Computed example of a mutant assay.
Amino acid sequence: MPIVKNIKTVTAILGIIAWLGVISQFYTSVPAYLQKGRTLGGTLVELFSFFTIQTNILVALCFTAAALGASQTAFFKRRGTLTSVAVNISIVALVFNLVLRATYHPVGLASLSNELVHVITPALFIIYWLAFVPKDSINWKDGFAWLWYPAFYLVYVLIRGAICGIYPYFFLDAGKYGYPKVVLNMGILLIVFLIMDLLYIFIAKLVDRYFGA
């Protein structure tokens, strides 16, 4: 198939789209934060504290690694890494579109940027994972190992929030809802991550069984 022969070109294009999503988020968000009196350093830390931004950067790095094909980018080409990132970007899309979309109404370029990081890039990466990422050697135990990233992120959010009083997502705002409620929300999120991990592993095993070499 021609598309398979030109996979580096395809991933290069997908990488450009993913990076445009991340860059446009900074381009539209930084001035808005600065107008509110935030410092540039504080603004950058705030933006990098969003799980959406972090995960979209990981997606862009995975596409870039696939396009470059260099040994230095091997980590981002591992099937376990790619599957974990697919899980995380799926969660980004689900949480935003099911929970947060009604609370956020950007306009103009900010609206396009929002769709890129929450809809277009997630959809493209999921399709890429389904079509091109090898599914063998993905085991059930991997689903538990993949929880380290969201778990570490949630702990970071609580620590940073306790220091500066800023939380990237309302359902993690311990200052507003208290730690018991937020810890419960974190537990629910980790269960969702685990379920999604196991779902992707199940899909991987099905694809490998029926379509693998």
Rank of each mutant, 00 (worst) to 15 (best):
W19A: 06
T43I: 05
Q72T: 13
Y153Q: 08
L189C: 07
V182D: 01
W129D: 02
N88T: 12
Q35F: 04
L100N: 10
F26E: 02
L109T: 13
L100Y: 01
L194G: 14
N88P: 07
Q54L: 13
Y177W: 12
F170R: 11
F51P: 00
I53V: 13
H105E: 15
V182A: 00
D136W: 04
G161Q: 02
P168W: 09
T103Y: 13
F171N: 04
K36R: 15
V99R: 14
I53Y: 05
I166K: 12
L40S: 08
E46M: 13
P31W: 00
R101N: 13
K141N: 13
F211D: 04
I159T: 08
R101K: 15
V22N: 07
G41D: 03
A12K: 11
V119P: 00
Y104K: 08
Y153T: 06
R160L: 04
Y167L: 02
A86N: 12
F211A: 06
L184E: 09
I23P: 07
Y179F: 14
M1R: 12
I203F: 15
F144W: 09
P180G: 02
L100I: 02
L199G: 10
D173P: 02
I53R: 03
A74I: 08
G15V: 00
I201Q: 03
L116V: 01
R78N: 11
L184S: 08
